[in-house]
């Protein structure tokens, strides 16, 4: 399955909906989108991965790269993910300590609102 990307900005939070497989072939598209969003002043990103079927280290690298970029602007990059197969790769690499990971977009928005 190919990668589908969509995004919307609500208040100060930009939600990036990702669907499909994030691998060495498709990850550059996600990276380009994250860079574009940051370049346009969107520094608080929430990547919704609930419809992601596959994620490899290339995808992790893109997310970490995005995190570095938003942090340079005192921003944030957090994730929505409840799928065990995806969460496992974050645990193996220790990245659960790096990313805020939420069970739903609403839960993440609520936490983001509290932090403002």
């Amino acid at each position: 399955m190919d990668l589908k990307l969509d995004h919307r900005t609500e208040d100060r939070l930009t939600v990036v909906d990702v669907e499909g497989e994030i691998d060495v072939y498709t990850a550059p598209r996600l990276r380009e989108l994250l860079i574009d969003l940051v370049n346009k002043g969107n520094f608080h990103l929430l990547v919704n991965m609930e419809k992601v079927d596959f994620l490899d280290s290339t995808g992790l690298g893109v997310l970490v790269g995005g995190l570095k970029r938003v942090r340079a602007h005192d921003g944030s990059l957090e994730l929505v993910c409840t799928q065990e197969r995806i969460l496992k790769i974050f645990r193996i690499t220790g990245l659960t300590k790096v990313f805020g990971i939420y069970a739903s977009v609403d839960e993440a928005k609520e936490a983001h609102g509290r932090d403002k």
Binding site: S57, L60, V64
Partner: peptide, 19 residues
Amino acid sequence: VFGIVPEMPGLGIAVIAGL
């Protein structure tokens, strides 16, 4: 070698080792 993920070289092998 890891042109696309320069942020995290060697991560792929680390993932394999974990799997």
